[in-house]
Structures are given as structure tokens and as C-alpha cells.
Design a protein around this nucleic acid. Structure first.
Lengths: 227, 227
DNA sequence: GGAAGTACTGACATTCTTGTCAATATATTC
DNA sequence: GAATATATTGACAAGAATGTCAGTACTTCC
């Protein structure tokens, strides 16, 4: 895999202008495509190996390009990280709000909670965001604010609507907020320590599923007693 | 703060053997003390700045020693990290089991949960462990297994004892496990995304307290319906 | 008070990583 | 098909981080 065989030219010296023909194939992508591939690779590295896995040379190797190409597209390593944050935030937002707005066969918390857990565990999104938060990035620019706000808003609307239909008491907004917070916390926690704890407890993949269901039921029960 | 003024000797050449008197003060600690100070500094850096803050030179500067001194005590950076893992695990274990075994004015979950959250947020223990878990360390050697197992055991004993006293049905052990898992997940999640989410929701410090209480009540209610 | 053990240091070596630059190959436009 | 734009590359520069080493100063033990 080492690059010894290739030694085409770069002999851009004053000499060597003779008969050297440019025989060197090069893949050329559109800028958008290249950025996408690079971000994909960075995402995988980060999810798998954590912070220390985010090295330009490694990512470049994964994509099959040279590392200056990454700098060309993102200016700096920091730029790459920012782009990764932005994209991840956007994906998460779409994923969460999409799941919530999905038809309205909703109303039952288990569904929502399942979606949240999946959205966060998908591609290691939670791991990725966790690292970004741990390193203090994604503090100012993060859309976390908006996302959380929007979601609580949607949930609260749902609950109020339901309360109207069933002519029960309107739910407390802080209660809705706390439910959202607990779910988010639990999902993040699971992404990080979940596997360890599950192993420690002798739970297999199926056990984790049971845990999620148990949690959904816990929330459902709470919703009912609040009514 | 730069070290320009000091240029004592090191002139260990064959020459310069003349009248140079060893005038250089040096602080000398016991090995244990030195290790403790180094670990303390490392812990702080890690909790504050995340993974990237764990640089030998920085830690050395914090302690007021040279960085080879750290290598002298811990062999390598990796050795330092391992020692940090071990100490943190031990502290957490003691803290958690200590809180649980505390008298037995327990029985009410709110107390336990409060202790768990405090133990994990203390000194950024959760942040620290999160990073260790994110980077894939602390997988084999971690005492997480034992800790989790012991805690579930203690909790289950409590519940069974209580069931006997009140002559109610004995609780399901998996239910106890899930409660512990949820609490752990939530506490870890809060350590990482908690501040962000709280800010996003416009919660102040007091709001976070309310959240914890709300959570404790949620668990308490669940315990009661299980009975 | 001398000897032995060891905590500690400065200087250096090595390796790794980001970033720069000039040159090259490919796509697009006229 | 020539001109332009730009995605891509190899080689190099600069800096940072861990680790090595020989030597220095403090403590303890006899």
C-alpha cells in the first residue's frame, strides 16, 4: 500500500523538460462530492476511534486522496470539524423532527423514544456529538438550542391537543421539557456507557431492546398518571 | 514564566570540573505524593478541556515539575492514563457504594439518585469516564463490571428486604437492573449534554435541581406501582 | 559523614501532524 | 481546440508531543 512505485514527475526543475509525457491518472470529483466523501470518512473515524482517530492523513487514506486535498476543501482541520458539526446537527434535527412529525400515528411515547434512540445511535451520532461537547466545541454555534426548543414545542402541542380531545387537564410544560431532557440524557448516556453497562449486567442485544421498551413504558405510565 | 534565567550546569563535559558549586534548589516529594499531584492535575485538565488537554508538558507545568518526571512515575503517557482510569474507577466505586450503604435511612430512591448524580458530576468524573469510554480505553480492565454488578446486588437486596417487611411481591431483578441502568445513563448523559440542554431550555441551576427531583419522583412512582 | 537509592532536571532525538506551495491533470466554456 | 478554472498531488516546512539519557540534588540508612 505504500507509494513507492509512483514517481511520475514533480521534476519541475528547470531541467527535465524533455519528452516526459503526462501519464498519470487522477480521479476528479465535484467539490460537493469530495466534501461529502471526506465528511463521511471523518464521521466514521470519529465514531469508531474517538477524537484521536481524526487525523487528516488517515481520513485522506480512507477516501483515497492526499491530505492536502482535505485542506483544499475545508481550509483547516478546524474547518473540517466545524463542517462535521454543522452536518451532524442538521442530520440529527431532520431525523428527530421527521420522526416526530411522521404521520400522527404517534401519541404513544414508545414510538418517539424509539426514534430518538435510533437517531442518536445511528452512525454513532451521539458518540460524535458527545465528543464535540466534551471538547467544548459546538457550544456557541450549535443548533442544539433550536433543536431542543423545537422538539419540546412539538411535544407540548401534541400533549395539549390530546388533552383537549380527551377533555383532561392540560399538561405542565416543564413536565414535557423534563421528559425530553431525560430521554436525551438517557440516549446519550446509552451511546457512551450503554454497551459497557449492558455487558457488565450480562445483557445481550435483546436485553438492550427490553431496556428501551421498559423505559418507554415508564414514560407512558408517567404520561397517564399525569392525565 | 520562561526558563531563561536558569542555566545552572549540565556542563557535564569533561571540562568545567572546576569550582562550580551545586547551587540549585529542588523540591523532592515522596513517590506517592508526586503521583497523587500528577493525577490530580491530569484529572483537572481532562475534566476541563477534554482529551486534548491531556499533554504531559501542560500537566507538568500545572504541578510545577518537568515532564520527564511524569514519565519517571508512570512510564509512559499511556501508563498515566491507565493509572487515572484505575483511580477514577476506585473513587467512583467507593463513592457509590458508600452512599448506598450509608446507614439505611435509604429506601427512598431520591436519595440514592441524588448521590449517583453527585458522585458522577463531582470533579467531572462522568466527563472523564466518558472520554475514556469514547476512546475505547477502559474496556477490558475497567471495573465497571464489578461496580455495576455490586450496585444492582445491593439495590436488589434492599428491595427484597422491603418487600419482605411489607409483605408485598418480590421485585423483578431485571427491573432493578433497568432502574440502575437508566440512572447511570441519565447521569452520564447529563454530565455531557446536560448543560447544553438546560441552557437551550432556559433552565438555570435551580431548574436542573428540579429536573433531578422530577426524575427521582418518576422512579419512586414506578417503585410504588411495582409493589 | 559517607554510601546508596531515587526523585528530578535540561537537552536532545524521534515521530507525528497540520499546513504551505508550486506543479499537474481534468472538466468546462467559448 | 485553446483558454480558464479548479480539484488534486508530492515534497517540504514548522511545530508539537512523547520518550530517552546522562547527570544532579535530595533523603535515608549505616
Amino acid at each position: 500500500m505504500s507509494s513507492v512505485a509512483k514517481k511520475p514527475a514533480t521534476a519541475g526543475n528547470a531541467l527535465a523538460k524533455t519528452a516526459e509525457k503526462p501519464v498519470q491518472k487522477r480521479v476528479r470529483r465535484t467539490a460537493d462530492e469530495a466534501r461529502r466523501l471526506i465528511l463521511d470518512a471523518a464521521e466514521k473515524r470519529l465514531a469508531r476511534q474517538g477524537p484521536e482517530g481524526l487525523r487528516l492523513q488517515d481520513i485522506a487514506r480512507d477516501v483515497g486522496i492526499s491530505h492536502p486535498a482535505i485542506l483544499h476543501h475545508f481550509e483547516s482541520r478546524e474547518g473540517l470539524v466545524r463542517a462535521l458539526i454543522a452536518r451532524t446537527n442538521k442530520q440529527l434535527r431532520d431525523s428527530l423532527l421527521g420522526a416526530l412529525g411522521d404521520g400522527d400515528a404517534s401519541r404513544d411515547a414508545a414510538d418517539h423514544i424509539g426514534h430518538v434512540f435510533e437517531a442518536l445511535s445511528d452512525k454513532g451520532t451521539a458518540r460524535l456529538l458527545s465528543w464535540l461537547l466534551l471538547t467544548g466545541r459546538a457550544t456557541e454555534e450549535s443548533d442544539a438550542h433550536n433543536i431542543m426548543g423545537e422538539i419540546v414545542e412539538v411535544l407540548q402541542d401534541r400533549r395539549e391537543e390530546y388533552a383537549r380531545e380527551t377533555e383532561t387537564a392540560a399538561p405542565d410544560k416543564e413536565d414535557t421539557l423534563f421528559i425530553a431532557m431525560l430521554t436525551a440524557n438517557a440516549a446519550f448516556g446509552e451511546a457512551i456507557v450503554g454497551r459497557q453497562l449492558a455487558e457488565a449486567a450480562g445483557l445481550d442485544q435483546d436485553g438492550i431492546k427490553r431496556f428501551r421498551k421498559w423505559f418507554a413504558k415508564l414514560i407512558n405510565d408517567h404520561l397517564e398518571t399525569e392525565r
